[in-house]
Amino acid sequence: MALRIWASSTANALRLSSATRPHFSPLSRCFSSVLEGLKYANSHEWVKHEGSVATIGITDHAQDHLGEVVFVELPEIGGSVTKATGFGAVESVKATSDVNSPISGEVVEVNSKLSATPGLINSSPYEDGWMIKVKPSNPSELDCLMGAKDYTKFCEEEDAAH
């Protein structure tokens, strides 16, 4: 372990830092925010059902793991989405990820702000960073999704497994 000690002393000498994230302490990373009242899919998307329309986006946990989002691919208005099937993609510096729809339905609106400002997904995953609005074709699908408490537990278990 001599090298480790050497590296530590070099790190001190250079005043090396591993930097700190302005918004996330190491602890809070493990406990990303999960909002009450939303439904969650195990592929880390959320859905908020209000009246005849459901809004869909990706969770804080997902955006935190992805890192800075640099591009968002969204479907056309009028198209249909299917439960547990990809409707778009988010690209971060490091990776491309499919985004699945938690429910089936018709796309009635897409968040056009994301094309110019994809970072809204990082800064405001549950509000300004929403992705699509859907008219659900089978609202009972919402019952199969997780609530806030179950999703929080799901994330903790998934992080622990890695």
């Binding site: 195990n42 592929s43 880390h44 998307e45 990706i58 997902a62 793991h65 992805l66 990809g86 993609a89 988010v90 490091k94 990776a95 491309t96 990820s97 499919d98 985004v99 699945n100 998934e158 890695h162």
Partner: peptide, 16 residues
């Protein structure tokens, strides 16, 4: 070369 959000962090591993 890409996965779902649940495979976060894996894609780059594969790519690199």
């Amino acid at each position: 070369m890409r996965g779902g959000l649940w495979q976060l962090g894996q894609s780059i591993t594969r790519r690199l």
